[in-house]
Amino acid sequence: MKDNSKLLNFTKGLWKENPILVTMLGLCPTLAITYKVENALGMGLAVLFVLVMSNLIISLIRHIVPDEIRIPIFIVVIATFVSIVEMVMEAFVPDLFERMSLFISLIVVNCIILGRAEAFASKHNWLDSILDALGMALGFTLVLIVISLIREVLGTGSITIWGNLAINFNKNNSPFFSNFFVSPPAAFIILGLILAGSKAINAAKAAREVKSK
């Protein structure tokens, strides 16, 4: 039973409590950077690191933090790890960092991270908090990758990841691929369709469960 609940802490972030699809947190970076698959991967990794580390630290200090000033303290912890990510990315992947530096620093105010700190890490032990952070960050990254795959393939007709892996789908210049999909309006529309799709799947699932009972 105990192992099962540990596993559940991890898996609930992937679908059941997915930060984008269900709780709808962190929509700003989801909309802004998903025009390229490599942006989605970079953003996902950055959020994974910040979320795991801040959840770990916050769950370790949860007994010594006074209740009244917990939010400012959480924000300072999160901002510290975001600054670390900024410096590491600037040193090792400078062109990726240049493209999304604004949204990397905006991880500080990303509701997913403060939300998990407040709702989970400040109430659970460090192991559960890390599992929760891993699940949430992976769920977030998976949705980012799905959206950016749709946008990059339909928008440019190809996928390029760090220059090494490049696949071209648009060999004979078909009008099916339009750069509308990499423009800002398409981000809103595609995310809207994906959210509607996940809601429909959940509704169908619930209906089936009612029937089987």
Binding site: P184, P185, A186, A187, F188, I189, G192, L195, A196, A200
Partner: peptide, 23 residues
Amino acid sequence: IPKAFQGIPIALITAGILAMIFA
């Protein structure tokens, strides 16, 4: 509105159309 689109999904799609106008 179809049930799956109620709330945030339809709001996002509306925002997309508004963004096209602003573009």
